[in-house]
């Protein structure tokens, strides 16, 4: 396969500007806010994560804000492999999925055998979704076959679990590379493509998300397969999240406005969305003091 689609950067940023100038208010805003909650991958990926913290986060996932009835639950909890069984246990009886990062997250700097072992371990522990990172070093040195094989093998190791492929676009340097990596990942078996690990400074940016969404659209026209998208990192305000929904709707259509095909990877976004929902209902601005941290 030859990957040589080039991206018109100026055109892309113009398009982003137009999409981001939409004003979403009242009922549409409320609809969008609830949609965002249902698309959240509530995430904790810290070296300091403990069973207690993961349990607390799982509780939050299932009980976002009990004072306010009618709120959806989040889509998934995203943790490190050794926390998967704890999350599984805590989420029993809810329909919230357990996702695990694997393959030497966040850098991916380990050998393939170790990566596959980690994926199998996570899946055995009960992970229903696996977030892998691509080998950016190999990708940037042009070893596309290596990257592609790696993704395919990880997909195989996943079994029934869904595979999200993290491109870490902040390290890919150009939009052409982002497009190339997206196409490569989709052809190699990704169920979702994801922007970032959230562990480097540059994470999901609107222009990168648009580029990836367009790759998904072109792939759909070519193969008929619906690949999912997950922007992650740096999305902490509901306003931005709503604008991303607009972007998805405009690029891929209504079919993608579901947690099966679109996710947000975030931790602090949940509270901001909750505060907005309560504000829409009660009319007064909210304080973070009245919402649980995690």
């Amino acid at each position: 396969m030859i990957y040589n689609t080039t991206i018109d950067q100026v055109g892309c940023s113009e398009r982003v500007k137009r999409i981001f100038s939409r004003s979403i208010k009242k009922e549409s805003k409320m609809w969008a806010l609830k949609k965002i909650l249902s698309m959240l991958d509530l995430t904790t990926l810290e070296g300091s994560d403990s069973p207690g913290k993961v349990k607390q986060l799982c509780y939050k996932a299932a009980h976002l804000h009990d004072k306010h009835p009618g709120l959806p639950r989040v889509a998934a909890i995203c943790v490190y492999p050794n926390m998967v069984s704890i999350a599984q246990e805590s989420l029993k009886g809810t329909n919230i999925k357990t996702a695990s990062v694997a393959t030497g997250f966040p850098s991916g700097m380990t050998n393939l055998r170790a990566k596959l072992d980690e994926v199998k371990y996570a899946v055995n522990e009960g992970a229903e979704e696996v977030d892998m990172v691509i080998s950016r070093g190999h990708f940037l040195s042009g070893e596309l076959n290596y990257v592609s094989d790696e993704i395919a093998k990880v997909k195989e190791a996943c079994g029934n679990a869904k595979l999200k492929v993290i491109l870490e676009t902040g390290e890919l340097c150009t939009l052409d590379n982002v497009r190339k990596a997206s196409d490569l990942a989709m052809d190699s078996g990704a169920d979702f493509i994801k922007t970032s690990t959230g562990k480097i400074t540059e994470s999901a940016t609107p222009i990168v998300v648009l580029t990836m969404l367009e790759a998904i659209r072109d792939n759909y026209h070519l193969t008929g397969k619906k690949i999912g998208m997950k922007p992650a990192g740096g999305i902490s305000k509901s306003k931005l999240a709503i604008q991303y929904l607009v972007m998805v709707r405009e690029t891929l259509g209504n079919d993608w406005l579901t947690p099966d095909l679109f996710r947000f990877g975030a931790s602090s976004l949940a509270n901001d969305v909750l505060m907005q929902i309560i504000k829409q209902g009660q009319g007064n601005y909210q304080s973070s003091n009245y919402f649980s941290l995690d």
Partner: peptide
């Protein structure tokens, strides 16, 4: 109204 109702 807003000066006195803001929760923060």
């Amino acid at each position: 109204d807003h000066f006195s109702s803001h929760m923060d």
